[in-house]
Design a protein around this nucleic acid. Structure first.
Lengths: 199, 199
DNA sequence: AAGGCTATCTATAAAGT
DNA sequence: TACTTTATAGATAGCCT
């Protein structure tokens, strides 16, 4: 009998692999193994699957059938139910007041105006990453898809608007404006206040 | 030597399993196998993963580390790049005008006020589906998480506001209002117009 | 439908090219 | 660096309870 040529596959401990090189190799093998399994599951059982993985180097890997975005939309549509979101939104604004909200929206609009002036730059970026998925989406989710886009845009604007609002708040304090912008501007930013108000 | 007790594992053809019963069993075994693999990959390589599966019966199964929503947010943040979304948003509004937008936002606010009056009903719904994920989210993505919620809420409000706007438009036409509400209200709804305007 | 068994198939850890 | 090989660990098809 020949001496064993290799040790073959060995059992490994289920903890984070210490050696960085080995970790990279294992990640590469295993994530592709998982994608293959997912692909088989799609074929064998005719199901829809999306997998999102952020590698050790923070790069995103994804698998999707028929399309990652489609699956995500379908998931979001049922899971964090819209009614839940809206009630949280209302709860938040019950504690604040509508005048403040008006103020913030006004700021968003002002910011919108400003953004329009630099819109050309954004147009270029848009050209670069032409969206690829819309036309693949089943008709019944197309509306949601679009709304998603709108929402992402609103979030971007909102962030910018908050910075703007911070500036305006300082100005406002010096002039006693008709629509005061209070500290709620900060509460609405990335802080934990809203998230903790939930239960 | 004993006669074989079973045939053991047999190779199967990579096609949709015809027998419905067998398919259900295979789905159950395989999806849990994939989740186990994913879990191991998390542990071994310290990566973040989300998996969404819609079963043959359309039920959603998900795996997420640290949390499905977190991963989805991170993915959406990079993939259909925000700049793409925002530029589409801007392109859309370049064709409309800011006055109209102002009008719509005003309607949203009006709707908000109305919603507050029926807020109790929404509170009940909120109780039913307590969100489970916020506090699990890593600090650096919490802000996005919240903003996601806000956005979903805005979208809900927007839909309602559009119906409201439709009514107001009719009123407005009879009184020559300071802020005219034009047909863009419809274009902004869930129809395909915006999505097709992309390229 | 859910869980267990066994024989076999598949994935993959380690080492080699 | 990445592909190939080897041998074993792990997943699972078919069957049964």
């Amino acid at each position: 009998m020949m001496p064993k040529l290799t040790k073959g596959r060995q059992k490994i401990e289920m903890k984070k692999i210490p050696d960085e090189r080995n970790l990279a190799v294992t990640f590469s093998k295993r994530y592709s193994g998982i994608f293959k399994k997912a692909s088989e599951l799609c074929t064998l059982c005719g199901v829809d699957i999306a997998i999102l993985i952020f590698s050790p180097t923070k790069k995103a890997f994804s698998f999707g059938h028929p399309c990652v975005e489609t699956i995500i939309d379908r998931y979001l549509a049922q899971h964090p139910p819209p009614s839940s979101s809206i009630s949280q939104f209302l709860e938040f604004h019950r504690n604040a007041n509508t005048q403040e909200l008006t103020g913030q929206l006004a700021n968003i609009l002002r910011q919108l105006e400003a953004e329009k002036k630099t819109g050309e730059e954004l147009d270029k970026m848009k050209k670069i990453n032409q969206d690829r998925c819309w036309w693949e989406a089943p008709i019944d989710t197309l509306g949601v898809e679009q709304l998603e886009q709108l929402k992402m845009a609103m979030l971007e604007l909102k962030k910018n608007a908050e910075k703007q609002a911070e500036r305006l708040k300082v100005e406002a304090a010096n002039r006693k404006p008709t629509i005061p912008i209070s500290d709620s501007t900060e509460a609405d930013a990335a802080g934990p206040s809203m998230s903790r108000d939930m239960d």
